[in-house]
Simulated assay, not measured.
Amino acid sequence: MLKHRSSKDVQDTHDLVMHTYYSDDASSRVHHLGLHKALCVLMGWNFSKAPDHSKAYQNLPAEVAAVNQDQLIIWPPHVIVHNTSTGKGKEGRMEGFGNKRMDNRVRELGLTGGKPKSLYGRDGGHLGITLFKFAGDDSGIRDAMRMAEYFEKTNRGRKSWARVQPPIPSKDDEKHHSLVEVDGRTGEKKRILYGYLATITDLDKVDSETKKKTTIESLREFTGSK
């Protein structure tokens, strides 16, 4: 076994992985191993292979790394919904759907259980993102997955959003058939919503308050026993 490294010796991510895996502090062993796994998943490395100085554990197929990352979710569960801005207002700031309007939109889709929170930037402009927070229990994860599965099955999930996402939200979005659709009955233009279950890779998309009030949990722990 490799010699335990002090936290003072940590200079990069590899050193941190080594420290968390080989820590001999019995009182925090479980927490260290949890951090080791989270770091490896976040970096796309193999957490099941003992780390060493050859760094062989860093070799993991991209598709396997992606699956591992998808399994570490923000808890309580959240669904991130995109394309909720409506263009610039009179003052030049981006405007978008508020919480009540987003709640009504998802109810129209037959989806319930989540509490919406529209996100705004430092300038007060709408970011085009709404978070739906679900209860931190079995019913909450079921409702969150149901919403995420709805978007995925209608080709409006994570990968679809990555393909159609505009560099900067603008009024011109209305000309993009993948972002705005016209109601055949009323002629009303409607934003096409895209969404997916929030994972560890989405921490940069959520607001600071959400980061403080959430943890990272393994989706397998909740779905594996069902």
Score class of each variant (00 low, 15 high):
residue 4 H to K: 15
residue 7 S to R: 15
residue 9 D to G: 05
residue 10 V to F: 01
residue 14 H to P: 02
residue 17 V to D: 06
residue 20 T to E: 14
residue 24 D to K: 12
residue 28 S to G: 05
residue 28 S to H: 07
residue 40 C to K: 08
residue 43 M to S: 04
residue 44 G to I: 07
residue 45 W to V: 10
residue 48 S to E: 10
residue 51 P to S: 07
residue 52 D to W: 00
residue 62 A to E: 13
residue 63 E to K: 07
residue 64 V to S: 05
residue 72 L to H: 04
residue 78 H to C: 05
residue 85 S to F: 14
residue 85 S to R: 06
residue 86 T to R: 11
residue 89 G to K: 09
residue 89 G to Y: 10
residue 89 G to W: 09
residue 91 E to G: 05
residue 93 R to Q: 15
residue 95 E to Y: 10
residue 96 G to R: 09
residue 104 N to W: 10
residue 107 R to N: 13
residue 108 E to V: 15
residue 113 G to S: 08
residue 115 K to N: 12
residue 118 S to Y: 09
residue 118 S to E: 12
residue 121 G to F: 00
residue 125 G to W: 15
residue 125 G to P: 14
residue 126 H to T: 09
residue 135 A to Y: 03
residue 136 G to F: 14
residue 137 D to R: 12
residue 137 D to T: 06
residue 141 I to C: 08
residue 143 D to Q: 12
residue 145 M to R: 15
residue 146 R to K: 14
residue 148 A to H: 12
residue 150 Y to N: 02
residue 161 W to I: 08
residue 161 W to M: 06
residue 161 W to C: 05
residue 174 E to M: 15
residue 177 H to T: 13
residue 179 L to S: 02
residue 179 L to K: 10
residue 180 V to H: 01
residue 181 E to S: 12
residue 182 V to M: 06
residue 185 R to C: 01
residue 190 K to E: 06
residue 191 R to M: 02
residue 192 I to E: 00
residue 194 Y to E: 00
residue 198 A to S: 13
residue 198 A to F: 00
residue 199 T to L: 03
residue 200 I to H: 01
residue 200 I to G: 02
residue 200 I to S: 07
residue 203 L to F: 15
residue 203 L to I: 05
residue 204 D to Y: 03
residue 205 K to H: 01
residue 209 E to S: 05
residue 209 E to I: 13
residue 211 K to P: 00
residue 215 T to W: 04
residue 215 T to F: 05
residue 217 E to D: 01
residue 223 T to K: 00
